[in-house]
Design a binder for these strands. Structure first.
Length: 227
DNA sequence: GAACCGATTTCCT
DNA sequence: GGAAATCGGTTCT
């Protein structure tokens, strides 16, 4: 379909093996690439860091379980989990093998394949609304058609809908350019602008100081950042 | 086996 | 600003 697409350079994944806060800043601006049946590319514009077993906001706070096992593995691997029984979330594992840490991809700015993303959002919505009235479903279709490109993946669950990411992608190596889902480097010379930071979202269960740690990072002023 | 809760999103008051 | 949808994980009984 997109015969003119040239894959960019792979993401320099050694950056993910270092400390997660540095890795978070490195990952901002990088590409998320989905291949197969056309191509979808987006720019990562918002991430959150979950660092170590003592981070009481992290899934790793209970130790190693079947769900979070890949957080304890090598960096550059995808950790995908289901939240609220409804939405998938994508993380990029960071730090040394054996130490549980990851970056939650909270928002992506669509660059290529926006129609595929919109279609994927639609499929996900149809599945979720299957048991709802046809009236409700039609309203959702209209809403998605009118949604600006910048809003397609402006939340962690929406990123996974747009890129068709689910349990099948858990433990996938995002640093292997041959993977159907992988990371790419931002083009040389692309201006990234400033980076802002603040507390993480949706972790009200966590005690201080974890609740207030400014471990959410985003590209300042980017229109695709989540609300 | 039951109760409670969640790294979300959308709709309604 | 509050609630619902929905299911897997954790922590009890």
């Amino acid at each position: 379909v997109l015969a003119g697409y040239r894959p960019g350079k792979p993401f320099p994944c050694r950056l993910l093996a270092s400390d997660s806060l540095t890795a978070a800043r490195s990952l901002l601006g990088a590409r998320l690439v989905r291949k197969g049946d056309g191509i979808r590319v987006g720019r990562i514009v918002e991430v959150e860091a979950y660092i170590g077993q003592d981070d009481l906001a992290s899934h790793a706070r209970f130790g190693r379980t079947r769900r979070n096992a890949v957080m304890f593995g090598p960096s550059g691997v995808a950790y995908v989990y289901l939240v609220y029984g409804m939405y998938n979330c994508l993380n990029v594992v960071t730090e040394a093998n054996g130490r549980p840490a990851a970056l939650l991809v909270r928002a992506v700015e669509p660059l290529l394949g926006m129609e595929l993303m919109r279609q994927a959002r639609l499929s996900a919505s149809e599945a979720r609304l299957a048991r709802r009235s046809s009236d409700r479903r039609e309203r959702e279709r209209a809403r998605l058609r009118a949604l600006p490109d910048d809003a397609l993946a402006s939340g962690p669950g929406l990123v996974c809908d747009c890129f068709s990411i689910g349990p099948a992608e858990d433990a996938l190596d995002l640093c292997d350019p041959a993977s159907t889902l992988c990371l790419g480097e931002a083009p040389r010379g692309e201006s990234r602008g400033g980076i802002s930071s603040g507390p993480r979202i949706g972790i009200g269960y966590a005690p201080e100081p974890w609740l207030s740690r400014p471990w959410r990072f985003w590209l300042t002023g980017n229109p695709a950042v989540s609300r």
